[in-house]
Amino acid sequence: MPVNYLSGIFGPSLLKPLQEHMDAVIACVSLLPELIHSLNQGDGDHASKLHEQVIEHEQHADELKIVLREHLSYSLLLPIPRRDLLEILQTQDKMANRARDLAGLVRRRELSFPEDLREDYLRFLRCCVNSAVQAQSSVHELDELFETGFRGQVAEIMSRFLGNLDALESEADQLQSELEARVMQKESSLPPVDVMFLYRVLSWTGNLADYSNRIGNSLHLLVTR
């Protein structure tokens, strides 16, 4: 049966793949607290297993990203500017990469925070993961936004979501600078190379919240344009 031209005029839907990509990214990110926890407990086997899962999810996300990028190369008429869509996709991609790198770093170096900082670091990490999950819900709100032409009631709900994202990001910033200050106090008592990597872990963890917020900003552009 030849392809019917009437059905041929409908291009591939891009919202669903974008959401699936985000789901894969979040699957990757949300493994991090457990990974850190098991390292803190000294359970290296479990940590390796989680690390492998993080890598798997990240690879899955990469595959989805490639498919989506191919779709974007067609001459398609889209309800949202192609550039905005690409921007969201790239930020999501960066988030997954960051989560993968972070998992790799702590796993390989068996890095853990000094006993008295562990709880606070986990709190910081969970805050960043929360903001990533909030970004995921916002990306899933694209269905409803598309339905209403990116205006009206749904756009207001979306703005509320983005407000949450802002709040989570400033909370994460706050926690990050507190932790950095406390690591600084302990610098002299810790191996210098470890200190270097602790700062890096903090900064990469904070990136997760930054990226979440950047996704939020891109979505905000869609409803205000």
Binding site: G8, I9, F10, I80
Partner: peptide, 18 residues
């Protein structure tokens, strides 16, 4: 259908096929 697409009503239309 293209008119609806112009009003941002369709998630993607293949302009080449049109």
């Amino acid at each position: 259908v293209l008119g609806v697409g112009m009003a941002r009503g369709i998630s993607s239309l293949n302009l080449r096929v049109i």
